[in-house]
């Protein structure tokens, strides 16, 4: 395997609504990540984008994103209908073939264009589940209820996740939501989808994340301390809501195993867990101990720009490796109801 590292990243400020077009939001972030790497567009061997038509309500919505890249002369480029973190996976794989040495990957999403809780319903079985229109929060609440009843999580542990996330976001200028809340106040807050409270739920946002990865010595020449991808893997599990575990995440556990998470201690984990109880399930599936700092950025509870949020976790984890705060970190992205699909990446300093 070729050595590949994240050498730069950039994110837009997460907002609850924006009047810019999606491509107008992209351009400053693309320019910023290139500037952060002291690169120009001609230094990029491959471009890969993650987004979703149903987020913007427009077929082929990703086509206009090419307008943000200055794709002239023509570029080698691809698109995944998924989080930008999966675009990073495709680019990592392309570097492994030896065809390219550098790639710029990005993800963008506008949760404010429509009712995201309702849009996500369209991910369900279109014949027998979707027509009932269960929304995303309700489905997550069913899982949270099962976790509470089985004793896998407690309401207090969920409140602690919400408390820590919103406190961490106090130092993240990109976050959409932040605050210092007492556990008592969090547990007394109004239920929005029993047993979930507002701050147990993702802060849906409009956002953009871009990351540049490079191979071997190219990475060393572009960054003082690249965040080396030592393991990366993604796995999926059944979506069938009636025929799968509601209290564990076998796909996340398998991806973590394949990515080599357990080979050494993890200093920082940036996890894309949209709901507070899901973070608890995920840390358990990944086998993380108390010594790991979880979501110093505040995570998805404080800003969840769908299709960009997973790549944002990679960017946050890489930043902490690159600035020396962490020697070994996890970037994680998820997709689907009950975190059906999980992508795990282990990043290390030199």
């Amino acid at each position: 395997m070729r050595e590949v590292a994240i050498i730069a990243s950039a994110q837009a400020d997460n907002t609850s609504t924006t009047t810019s077009t999606p491509v107008e939001m992209l351009i400053p972030v693309i320019q910023q990540v290139l500037a952060n790497a002291s690169m120009t567009k001609t230094d990029i061997g491959f471009w890969c984008h993650g987004s979703c038509d149903y987020m913007t309500g427009q077929p082929f919505s990703f086509v206009s994103a090419v307008d943000a890249l200055g794709a002239w002369p023509p570029i080698i480029e691809s698109h995944v209908e998924a989080d930008g973190a999966f675009a990073l996976y495709e680019a990592w794989m392309k570097i492994q073939t030896g065809e390219i040495d550098t790639a710029l990957v990005f993800g963008n999403g506008r949760s404010s264009s429509g009712d995201i809780n309702r849009i996500l319903t369209l991910q369900l079985d279109p014949y027998v589940v979707g027509p009932l229109w269960p929304d995303d929060r309700s489905i997550a609440a069913m899982q949270a209820r099962a976790c509470l009843e089985s004793g896998v999580v407690t309401e207090r542990a969920m409140a602690e996740v919400a408390q820590r996330s919103h406190r961490n976001a106090l130092t993240n200028p990109k976050a959409l939501r932040r605050g210092d809340h007492s556990i008592e106040a969090l547990m007394a807050a109004q239920l929005v989808a029993d047993p979930l409270r507002e701050l147990d739920c993702p802060a849906h946002a409009d956002g953009v994340t871009a990351v540049i990865i490079a191979a071997g010595d190219r990475a060393r020449s572009l960054a003082a301390r690249p965040a080396w991808i030592r393991g990366i893997d993604h796995r999926i599990e059944s979506q069938n809501l009636g025929n799968r575990s509601m209290t564990s995440l076998p796909s996340a556990a398998l991806a973590a195993h394949k990515a080599g998470v357990a080979n050494d201690k993890i200093d920082v984990a940036e996890l894309h867990a949209p709901y507070s109880h899901q973070e608890l399930l995920l840390t358990s599936a990944l086998g993380l101990s108390e010594s790991t700092t979880i979501n110093p950025s505040g995570g998805a509870l404080c800003a969840n720009p769908m299709m960009s949020a997973g790549l944002a976790r990679f960017a946050e984890a890489a930043t902490r490796v690159m600035n020396g705060t962490a020697d070994r970190a996890i970037g994680h992205a998820s997709s689907g109801p009950w975190m059906q699909q999980n992508l795990v990446c282990v990043l290390e300093g030199e």
Partner: peptide, 9 residues
């Protein structure tokens, strides 16, 4: 959409 696609500007 507010951009020059050729220049990415």
């Amino acid at each position: 959409n507010g951009t020059c696609a050729k220049c990415g500007a």
